[in-house]
Design a protein around this nucleic acid. Structure first.
Lengths: 171, 171
DNA sequence: CATTACCCTGACGTTAACGTTAAACTTTTG
DNA sequence: CAAAAGTTTAACGTTAACGTCAGGGTAATG
């Protein structure tokens, strides 16, 4: 009865950390290896791709997916959003989409500093505004949830304590 | 994109707090009233009963469910476990079952102090042990999760901060 | 006591997030 | 280069947690 019911997604350690593992070849990581590395199934990776959450960086000529370490990092991010924050895949996609928009914004901002039309600038402002608000709203929700979880944890440890005391007293 | 996707289960306030509300009559609260009070559907209450999570304290002669305020408190407990801890209904049932066993244990303990057979005592010990361990394990899992959530919250507020700064700088 | 307004028990429908299997194709390996 | 191992798409299956609807009783109300 763990707090979250996640089926024990414990990433399989890449044992020896030399680059000679059959997996991390420079040709990219194949789907089943990528999957076991992060502790999910190959089906999950295909499904996430179908939803537009994670596209492998390359495909072989024959059409097989090959993942990079960056892809895996991205995947871990997704899983964190799912497991720790309890987001569903749709929410994750929206969240990641906004992040992407922000990154693009940063890029164009750096590219042509100050050289922007009024319309483009208004759009940038809107995006920034949206990002700030989303992050703040998420943070607030998290704060609330954290408080309630903390309260619960306190009662849990208290109950455990009392059980232990009674047990000790029974000797 | 709230952190948890719960459909806004905001309990409907019982407006006037006099006991003359058509609901809280001493004959018990009928299912739809109970449901709207805690912000779920009547179907949910029947389903929870089917799973053995929540049985109404009384039934009318005609076979209609009537809930008490205690029942509603119990229900809120269940919803907290579901929403805040993210437990599924099966985990909740097991958790509540252990709590019930503990309560029974306390009752019998108070009833005939010290007057217990060796077998009964061993059973009590086992239950206490189990409860302590479950609570501790839950607490530990919670601690881990809390840490990760906190970290996430920090980056969220940081990002929001940075968005706000850029926005200010754009004026 | 006749309407309303609710409630009951099936039973089938729905959605998210994959699991599983089939048939055909690629890649790796000895 | 042939066998073995892995992959692809497509499509149907599965589970949890309810939603919805039908047919038929039950409670409250004027």
């Amino acid at each position: 009865m763990p707090v979250n019911t996640e089926p024990d997604r414990t990433p399989t350690e890449p044992a020896a950390e030399a680059t000679d593992t059959p997996e991390a070849s420079d040709a990219g990581i194949r789907i089943s290896d990528a999957a076991t590395r992060v502790g999910v199934s190959a089906r999950t990776l295909r499904y996430y791709e179908e939803l537009g959450l994670l596209t492998p960086s390359l495909y072989t000529a024959g059409g097989e997916r090959r993942y990079t370490l960056d892809d895996l990092a991205h995947l871990e991010r997704i899983l964190e959003l799912r497991e720790v924050l309890g987001m569903n895949l749709d929410e994750i996609r929206e969240f990641l989409a906004l992040e992407t928009r922000l990154d693009e914004l940063k890029a164009t901002y750096r590219a042509n500093k100050g050289d922007t039309t009024k319309k483009a600038l208004a759009l940038q402002k809107a995006t920034l505004q949206e990002a700030a608000e989303l992050n703040e709203s998420l943070a607030k929700a998290l704060t609330d949830k954290l408080a309630r979880m903390n309260a619960f944890r306190t009662t849990l440890t208290g109950d455990a304590q009392r059980c232990r005391e009674i047990l000790a007293e029974m000797e």
